[in-house]
Amino acid sequence: MVPTLTGRIQTRIVLLATVGSVLTLLVTPLLPIHAPLGTAYKTTFIILATVIVLGIVWEFIYHFLMQWRWEKDWPTNFGLITLVPEGLVVWLLLNAKLVPGIHGKVPLAAFLIDFLVVWIGVWLVANGPMRVPFLRWRFHGGRLA
C-alpha cells in the first residue's frame, strides 16, 4: 500500500485498535511484569493508546519526509524501521513518567516484547492480509472510510 496522509492515519488507528488490541490481550499475561494482571493490562493498553496518539504526529512527519521521495511511496521496510524512533520515544516518555495513567516503572524487557509483538503483528497484517477483507484499501492510499 502506498499511503496518503489520511490513509496513513486511518490505517494506523484501525490496525492498532483492532490487531494491536488482540495482540496486546494475548501477550500481556506473558510479560515479565510483577503486578496483578489488571494493572498489567492497564499499562499495556495505555502504551497502545500512546502509540496510536503519538502515531498521528509521526504520520505527519513521515508524510513530510515522503515528499522528498520521487515515487511518493513508503517502502515496506520503512514501516518496520520506524519502530525504532517510535519505540524510543514511548520508552523515554514512560521513563520520564509523562504517560498519563502509568505511574510505576515498566520493565524494559516487558516493554520491548509488548511493543515489538504489536508493531510486527500490525506491520505484517498491513502488508498483506489487510487486503483480503478490504479490497479497495490499497488503491485508496490506505483510507478505509
Binding site: V2, P3, W70, E71, K72, F139, G141
Partner: peptide, 16 residues
Amino acid sequence: QGFNYPKSVWGGQLKA
C-alpha cells in the same frame, strides 16, 4: 524509476 510511473499513482498521493 522503478515502474513506468511513480509508485504512488497506483494508490497513493499522486493517484489522489
